[in-house]
């Protein structure tokens, strides 16, 4: 039997609407990308999806997304720790601000970040003095992706940190562990799966991010061109097959990430049970 009988009505109707809308809005259009990429043949797909220019774009997108997720892995973790464990003035505001990247349109973030960090401007002046270039290069892309990814790490870690049983830490301490040992041996390992999930979510979002990045990226082919921008450029030149090929490569990586995230969460659930 496909479903267990229940007294609650409306199953057929609501599932029907759900599947219809899901198919029409998401699944069928998404399949168009795969069909388009398949339509230009294997050689065409490889030529477009793995061209030198595309490979450079992936390297930038994936590399900067990884760097940003790593930065957020450190600073997002201590932010979550401070929000869960400490009491300090302005905590509510800081807590609300962490979600800013979810609420602020990406294009706004993009022009704000480039104005802040480009050479000769506001913060850029200070960076110039330190001979650091933080816009129109890898660093610039990483800054934008750090902005975008921060809440994923913080919001994934927070509930796990809150649920960390104090008695485990107390037990470690009463058995003679120093605070440092307790944190390193007891607290951090139990945060592992959540940290990886947050890292993967931030990474996945960063790889596909467009709006906040293109203003600060520089957008030079082979150098500072992110993969989503390359799709847009191919589209503007009516190279639909090439655009679809790059999209398929990115989708495959995203789905692999999604699979990894689910596997981590399933593993963590088994560990907890």
């Amino acid at each position: 039997m496909f479903r267990r009988r229940s007294a609650i009505p409306g199953f057929g109707l609501t599932l029907g609407i759900t599947l219809t809308l899901l198919s029409v809005v998401v699944l069928i259009p998404l399949s168009a990308v795969a069909l388009k990429a398949a339509g230009i043949g294997w050689d065409g797909f490889v030529a477009a999806g793995f061209s030198e220019r595309a490979m450079r774009a992936y390297r930038l997108s994936f590399g900067a997304a990884f760097a940003a997720a790593a930065i957020n892995g450190v600073f997002g973790m201590i932010t979550a720790w401070a929000l869960v464990r400490y009491q300090f003035p302005g905590k509510t505001v800081l807590n609300a601000l962490v979600d800013l990247p979810f609420a602020l349109p990406t294009a706004v973030a993009g022009i704000a970040l480039v104005t802040l960090y480009q050479p000769g401007n506001l913060l850029g002046v200070w960076l110039d003095a330190l001979h650091i270039k933080a816009a129109f290069n890898f660093t610039g892309v990483t800054i934008a992706l750090t902005f975008i990814g921060l809440p994923f790490v913080v919001r994934t870690l927070e509930p796990i940190m809150r649920d960390l049983a104090a008695d485990v830490e107390e037990a470690a301490a009463s058995l003679g562990a120093s605070r440092w040992q307790t944190v390193m041996r007891v607290v951090l390992p139990s945060l592992g799966p959540a940290w990886l999930t947050g890292f993967a979510l931030a990474f996945a979002r960063g790889v596909g991010e467009y709006g906040s990045v293109i203003f600060i990226a520089g957008n030079l082919p082979f150098k500072t061109e992110i993969a989503p921008l390359l799709i847009v450029i191919q589209l503007e030149q009516y190279e639909y097959g090439a655009a679809a090929s790059i999209a398929v490569v990115m989708l495959l990586v995203s789905f692999a990430m999604l699979f990894v995230i689910n596997a981590i969460q399933a593993y963590a659930r088994r560990l907890a049970a």
């Binding site: 996945a204 596909g208 467009y210 989503p228 589209l235 999209a247 990115m250 989708l251």
Partner: peptide, 12 residues
């Protein structure tokens, strides 16, 4: 988990 650009591309 789909890039916004790809979301636009599919409708094109």
């Amino acid at each position: 988990s789909v890039s916004p650009v790809v979301a636009g591309l599919i409708y094109v």
